[in-house]
């Protein structure tokens, strides 16, 4: 059974969103996603300043046997990239909710309501 946290928003493509403050959020991949991938060996992330479009591809995570495209759960602008993951992508396996990928300034905070809550996402990743 994969781990899920309260208070996060989840997407059907297995990303999570956590509100830090105001319109600023962190984005990562879920514990379920990392468990399916296996040890992550590479993360391909956009540069700071990149515009994210909901449901559009923004990067990829790679293990030795699989690669998975990342789809943005939100519309917004990348304001910070988690540089720690470049050298140590396996941190995603250690704790998928600590190892955030991007810090993003949302276009619209209200849009988060369209994402899944813990219970609905749990059904999806069973």
């Amino acid at each position: 059974m994969s781990k899920l946290l309260d208070g996060l928003y989840y997407s059907e493509s297995h990303e999570w969103v956590k509100v830090v403050e105001g319109n600023t959020v962190l984005i990562g991949i879920t514990d379920f996603a990392q468990s399916q991938l296996g040890t992550v060996v590479f993360v391909d992330l956009p540069e700071t300043g990149t515009k994210l479009v909901k449901d559009a591809e923004f990067g990829a995570v790679e293990s030795v046997k699989a690669a998975s495209d990342l789809f943005s759960p939100v519309d917004g602008t990348v304001i910070e990239v988690n540089e720690d993951l470049i050298g140590e992508p396996e941190k995603i396996n250690e704790d998928a909710y600590e190892a955030w990928l991007l810090k993003v300034e949302l276009d619209d905070l209200e849009a988060l309501k369209d994402l899944l809550g813990k219970v609905d996402y749990a059904k999806l990743s069973e």
């Binding site: 040890t39 060996v41 590479f42 030795v64 396996e90």
Partner: peptide, 8 residues
């Protein structure tokens, strides 16, 4: 063989 080592 350690494939993670190779990839990293």
């Amino acid at each position: 063989i350690d494939e993670v080592f190779a990839a990293k």
